[in-house]
Every structure is written in C-alpha cells, then in structure tokens.
Design a binder for these strands. Structure first.
Lengths: 336, 336
DNA sequence: CTGAAAGCGCTAACAC
DNA sequence: GTGTTAGCGCTTTCAG
C-alpha cells in the first residue's frame, strides 16, 4: 500500500489539508480538539511528511552538505562532527558527503551539484588549486574550509598555516633541535596545505640561521599513517639524518613514530616528532604527540555562521576568517 | 535572478520540456543537432536540475543514508567510507548522517524519518536494545549493522561476536596469559556489542579452566580512547592485576596502552593488549596492536546488496548475514 | 523523434 | 480558526 499523504490524513480527520499542515508544522492557532483529532489520524495512518514535496514547495531543505575527501581520515571525521553540532545550534541538519574516489576532480563536486538538495555547502578541499578556485563561480551558498588561497571571492575559514608552521618549527628549535626534517612535501602541483606549512617551516629555519637542506623535506606517499611509515622508513634506510621531524599532520606522524620505533630510534631522545590537527587519538600515541591544534569547534561555528549569512541572502564579497591555533606540547618533543 | 528551470532551457532552445528532459537524462533517441542545441542552451543558462522536483516526480532519490553515532569515532568513519564505495558500484549516492547528541534515542532516528529523502537506510546502532528492535516496524528499506539481536524482522549484517571474542581470548591464553582482563563491561542495560564480546571472553576462560574474576571485567567510561585511559589508569592505581587486557575496541585499546605506559607497565612483556576493529591507525600504535579484524568491505557490500533488494521491492523476512573475521596478531600480544 | 498536459505531495496566499 | 486553490520544477503517459 502506498504511503499516506497529507490529504489522506485530512479526509481521515474530516478536516482540510491546511489544518493538517498546520498541525504537522506546529502552527500555534489550532483548536486543541482539532489538533487532537488530526494527531490521532496521523498516528493511525502512520503519516510522515514527504521531504521532497515540502522542499519543492518551500524552496528550502533545512540541510547543509558537508563535503570532505573521505570520512576514514580522522581529521575529516572530527571536523564533520563539529560542523554537525554547530549547524544544529542553528536548526540545520547536516549530511556528510564524501568525494568519489578516482573519478572527477574536486571542482566537479561544486559544478555538477544538483539544486534543491541542500541549502548550502561547506567544503573542505584537499587538492583544489589556485586556478580551480579562481574559476569557481558557485551559484549557491558555499563556504570553504582549509587552506584556500586568500584572494578568492568565496567565504573561507582556516588558520594562518605559515605562521603556525613557523611556530611549531620554532618550538622544535627552542628544544635544541638543529637538523629538523619536514614530512609533507608533495609532487607539483603541491596542495596549498603542504605548500603553506612547508613555507612556514622554511621561514623559521631561515630566521634561526639554520641551513636549508632539501633532503630533509620528505616527499609524501599518500596522506595516511601507512604512507608516513613508508616515507620515514625509506628515509632512515637511505641515511637521511635529523633530530626532529615535523609532520604535515598527525596521521603521518603516527606512521612516522612507528617507523622510527622500528628502526630503533628513540623519541624524543634522538628524534623529536610533531604533528598537526590534534586528533583525539594523538595524545594516546607513544610517546604522546606534540601537535598543532587548530580550533575545530571555532572553525565549525564560524563556517556555519558565514554560510547561514549567505543562505539568508548575503551577497557581499568573500570573507576570510582566521581561527585560533596553538602548539600543544606533549612528550614527543620534550628535551633532547 | 532565479535559477533557470527546464522550461527556460526549452524556450531558449526552441523545443519542448520533454526534449530537454530527454537530453538531461541521457535518453538515446534524440536527434544529434537537437541535442546539440539543447546542450548549448543548458550551458548558456547554467541550468542544473532541481533534485527535489525530480525526486517528487519520480519517487526515487538514488541516495542511501548511512546513519552512525558520530563520524569522529574512527570505526564509523571507516565503515561509512566502505559503504560509500560499495553503494557507488550500484549507482547509489551515500549521505552520512550522525545522531543528534544528547537528545532523542536511536529509535527516533528510524521513527521520525521523513519520507522522500533517501531510498533506503543503513543504520549502525550503538545502544539499541532488544526491545527497541522488536518494536521496530520501519516502512522503508532498512539494513542494520553491528550486533543486532538475531531473531528480528529486519535485515542485518554483522559478525559472530561471541565466537570472535572467544577466539581472541584463546589467542591470549595460547600466548601463556592466565589472568586476562576485559575492558568493555557496561552498566545495564548493556549494549549488545559489549554483552556479546563479554560472553565470548567468559566462555573462553571457562573452556580453558581459568577462574572468572569479576574485578577483571573493567566497566567502561565512554567509548573513547580517553575513556579507555581513565578506566585502565584507575584499575592499575586500584591494584587490579592482569597479564593481558582484551579491549572491546581499538580506540579503548589505544587509551589502555597509554595508561599502561604511564604506569611503567611494559607491553607485551608484562601485559598483552588486544583490540577489535582493526582501525587503520592500530598497526601504528606502539606496540603495534593485535586486533580482531572484521571484513569492513564485505560488510559494506553485503549491506548494500540487502538494501537494494528491499529497494527493489523484496518483502521477505529479515535476513541475517555473518561476515568474516580474523585475529590479526601484532606486537602487542607477542610472547609473555 | 518531439509536443502537450496531467500529476508527484506539499505549502502559502487568500478567502471565509 | 479553517477551507480552497494555485503553484514549486520535474517526469511521464499519450498523441502526433
């Protein structure tokens, strides 16, 4: 049997569709006994509103799409949760979408997007280049997360990666480290995240008068703990020397720690290790991981606020918000 | 200006709505030049179909909802990714929904669900009780993941938790461990996951003639690494003795390892540690974590197949599929 | 191969 | 307070 409709409920209760609609939507001015009668009909028939019809009629969905690369990277899982909580405070539902593996470029996520599915999109790109961003002309509310290029027309929330990466590098230098490696270079075209963190790392080295040694800029082999393990294991086997390792993110750091352990390198005595993201798991690694913590809750709240402005019709220029960050010092970088 | 509609494209191209619809939906029998003209109009106007209208007209969405507790628990992030990949092979899109923190019970997720939003739901409950399941009468395609009670009318994919937990406990016993603790008891009403794994643990102890010591069944304080740390730290401080610790899942195990380290307990020499889920991070913990690996890809594929049967109108009794599991032995349980 | 018209289920004016 | 009715943008018979 077909799902009951509004009109079925109306007939069952002996009222009009409008009245049922009023009850379903919690409209205040309905006589108590009428409301009661309608509610009984709803329960009796097992009526549930059809979201597509409602959306088509109202033009709104009450839903925000959060688009991430993949939820099996913990950082994306954590930011997606933060966004859901932030959106909920504004009465918005969140659905998380993941990029299709090995098919379309990230650009397509924004260009081939059906209308009417969500009211707005919060997107955390991973490989979007400056060119992609410049050509982006979304005709729906959109907020970007992460390391977008600043002078773009689209709203964006992120941290000052260059400054933060420099601060972490300085932290390592203050700890007495002199040959600091960076795990996070990428083949060109390098993503903005890697580029900016690498820039901050180089700036801090230069400011401290430390030599720039390209062999200590380790080339990534995937954004995963496994990839971190492989690269660091290969570097150690290849004779690369360093007394500190600054990793582009905590997942890579976890793999790096594993590789260092396997090669009998003690942390932090012989090599200090630092990461980025402050994942929930990071404090429980051995040793507990020093990391650059960005304000995820703040990022989420800011992104949702900017998006809701747009959903409410704001059409000004792209706004760029920086959120807080700090170096969280743990055992992996204590004393040389 | 308002978003262009199908009819706008039709007028622009000098054809009817039907023809534009044919082009948009890749219908084969359209004359090449007509198709070309329509496509030009689509590009010129920047037309994108309205998903709500299409869904209302067709009654289908091409979308599956994956409902999990929260994406910031890595297990859920990993299974959500596996489900997306499996669904994609069937031409279905996946949206991930998270439970609203601290409000409605899980039951509400299934009962208060709007129609027309998705074609089917794959739900991994965490706290659903046997009673909840018995009373569940969803009128939409639904597949449950995890440790649902077997004799339910709803399709379900999981592993044989009792057998698997017993196998892991036997693995620890074979390694020479005699006082094996279990981290994962819960206050009543205990979730099915904890209950079944605890049962398997007890059965294996009994089968090996080892005494049952309730003080070694550690009560959970949240399903997080932090919670695992707190419980194990308190147990050690309280004088609980054990030479192996079987954790309900890898996240708890990560916290447990951290607590053991902090208390100067060596792993695996003094205490062997085992987990469950085989998270991507688990092999990179120190020591590398022995874990019960369930077949996530297989779970995802099976769940999607069952769901698609239902979406295609299958109305038979609830089907229950068991997927493969195995003990993955790593350094955390090697030699006493 | 293309056009015309009737819905899909709901909301929102506008009457009453 | 409650009923009537005209769309929301698209698909889908059914003609032609």
């Amino acid at each position: 049997m077909a799902a009951p409709r509004l009109i079925d409920v109306a007939r069952h209760a002996g009222v009009s569709m409008k009245t049922v609609s009023n009850v379903v939507n919690g409209y205040r001015h309905v006589r108590p006994d009428t409301r009661q009668r309608v509610q009984s009909a709803i329960d009796a028939l097992g009526y549930r509103p059809n979201a597509s019809a409602r959306r088509l009629a109202t033009g709104r969905t009450g839903t925000i799409a959060v688009v991430v690369w993949t939820t099996d990277v913990p950082y994306f899982g954590e930011i997606a949760r933060a966004l859901q909580i932030a959106a909920q405070a504004h009465g918005q539902r969140v659905v998380v979408e993941q990029l299709t593996p090995r098919t379309e470029p990230e650009r397509a996520v924004l260009q081939n997007r059906d209308r009417g599915l969500v009211d707005g999109v919060i997107f955390h790109p991973v490989r979007l280049t400056a060119d992609d961003l410049a050509n982006l002309q979304p005709d729906f509310p959109l907020v970007l997360l992460g390391e977008a290029i600043r002078p773009t027309a689209i709203d964006h929330v992120g941290v000052d990666n260059v400054a933060a990466a420099a601060a972490m590098t300085e932290h390592l230098i203050r700890g007495g480290r002199r040959s600091i490696a960076f795990l996070g270079r990428q083949r060109e075209p390098m993503g903005e995240t890697s580029r900016q963190r690498l820039t901050g790392y180089r700036q801090a080295l230069a400011a401290a008068g430390l030599p720039h040694d390209p062999s200590r800029e380790l080339l990534l082999d995937g954004l995963s703990a496994d990839g971190g393990y492989r690269v660091v294991a290969a570097a150690l086997a290849g004779g690369t020397r360093f007394d500190a390792l600054f990793c582009r993110d905590d997942l890579l750091a976890a793999g790096a720690i594993h590789a260092l352990h396997d090669h009998g390198v003690s942390i932090p005595e012989q090599v200090a290790v630092a990461g980025w993201d402050d994942l929930q798991i990071s404090r429980h690694l051995t040793p507990s991981l020093t990391t650059l913590a960005t304000d995820k809750a703040g990022t989420a709240e800011t992104a949702v606020e900017l998006l809701i402005d747009r959903m409410n019709g704001f059409t000004g220029a792209g706004r760029h918000r920086q959120v807080e960050w700090r170096v969280v010092e743990r055992a992996s970088t204590r004393g040389p």
